[in-house]
């Protein structure tokens, strides 16, 4: 379609053509300010032109991939993308099933719970599981582990990696009987450790700096598929007199993480602590960092004790129904709860 057929004034059409914009396609990815500069018109006028271009193109073509704002998608595209999206398994079948297959890539997932419930264990497990190759139904990526609390223990990561490696060997023995078995290479526990990029962060300025730097780092290491922050909270619970500043810094960081998740198609897992909140005359438990932070993550999972069993509860998610499932922490890592009866509760 040509510019001449657009419902524009003659002078505008003339300016467009003299600037070299003859087809609508050539206008599709131009920003209003750029156009205003090039045609020497006001920005509102440029916006008007682009609007009529988009109207015109919509009339002409039904193809949804033709949009005026760069990077915009139609819901249909997103649905198709959603169906092909990948998940990182948690190694616990019950947990995976309530999460729709595991921790989903492209999203920020927040996991909170009291000390000792297994947040760090889940973090290490995810850092290992993300490396399971495609042949074994995994993602085949690498992990970035940002440790603010110093709870990451290499010996524990090695234990979990050993168990994962043993599971993979078992799987290949079952599914690839015969000569094929040799073809699929099994990962050694040390390989798992090599593929975890571990950062230890000792202050909140370092934490902010690192989140800013991640973009560059991941551009260099494209195969990173999960970023785990253990925990986002620790450095933000000390010495902040200016709560408004804290909120601003935190929401800036959250935006940064969401951008990373979308841009590189990776999962961001943020671990959070639990604090007591005073409301309605009594204390009850709530995740730390306040109400404004609770908007920062797409999914929110709360880990809690139920009697002698650990449970995970989906507190917030745009796509999953709220449910809870038991899991257990074993020497091998996160595993399904050992009791046989199925106890996934849909609330």
């Amino acid at each position: 379609m040509e510019v001449l057929r657009l419902p524009l004034s003659a002078s505008q059409k003339g300016k467009l053509i003299s600037a070299g914009y003859t087809s609508i396609a050539s206008l599709s990815s131009v920003s209003p300010s750029h156009l205003a500069l090039e045609l020497k018109v006001s920005e509102t006028e440029a916006l008007e032109i682009l609007k009529s271009v988009s109207d015109g193109s919509r009339l002409q073509s039904t193809s949804s991939s033709f949009t005026i704002v760069n990077g915009a998608q139609s819901a249909w595209d997103m649905l198709q993308e959603e169906e092909t999206s990948v998940h990182i398994t948690t190694s616990c079948a019950d947990l995976d099933s309530i999460l729709g297959g595991g921790i989903s890539c492209k999203e920020v997932t927040e996991i909170g719970g009291v000390p000792g419930i297994g947040k760090t264990q889940l973090g290490i497990q995810l850092a290992v599981n993300v490396q399971i190759p495609y042949d074994y139904g995994g993602v085949g990526g690498k992990a970035i582990y940002i440790d603010t609390e110093g709870s990451f223990m290499v010996e524990r990561a090695l234990q979990i990696a050993e168990a994962c490696s043993a599971d993979m060997a078992e799987y290949s023995r079952l599914h690839h009987k015969g000569p094929q078995a040799c073809e699929v290479k099994t990962m050694q526990p040390k390989d798992f450790l090599e593929n975890i990029f571990y950062f230890r962060v000792c202050s909140y300025t370092e934490q902010i700096a690192l989140t800013n730097y991640l973009d560059k780092f991941i551009t260099e290491h494209k195969d990173v598929k999960v970023v785990i922050i253990d925990s986002i909270t620790f450095h933000f619970r000390q010495d902040f007199d200016d709560m408004a500043l804290r909120t601003r810094i935190l929401s800036g960081m959250a935006l940064n993480l969401m951008k990373l998740a979308r841009k590189f198609g990776l999962a961001v897992v943020v671990l959070n602590q639990v604090t007591t909140k005073y409301a309605d005359g009594q204390f009850h438990l709530a995740l730390a960092l306040g109400d404004s932070w609770s908007h920062s993550s797409t999914n929110r999972i709360i880990l809690h004790w139920n009697g002698n069993e650990r449970y995970a509860y989906i507190d917030k998610s745009p796509s999953l129904r709220s449910a809870s499932a038991p899991y257990s922490v074993t020497p091998k890592g996160i595993r399904p709860s050992d009791s046989n009866n199925k106890r996934i509760k849909h609330v």
Partner: peptide
């Protein structure tokens, strides 16, 4: 140095 990940194998 801060911005480089640590080698976990050495760490061990």
């Amino acid at each position: 140095t801060q911005m480089q990940p640590e080698n976990l194998l050495l760490h061990h």
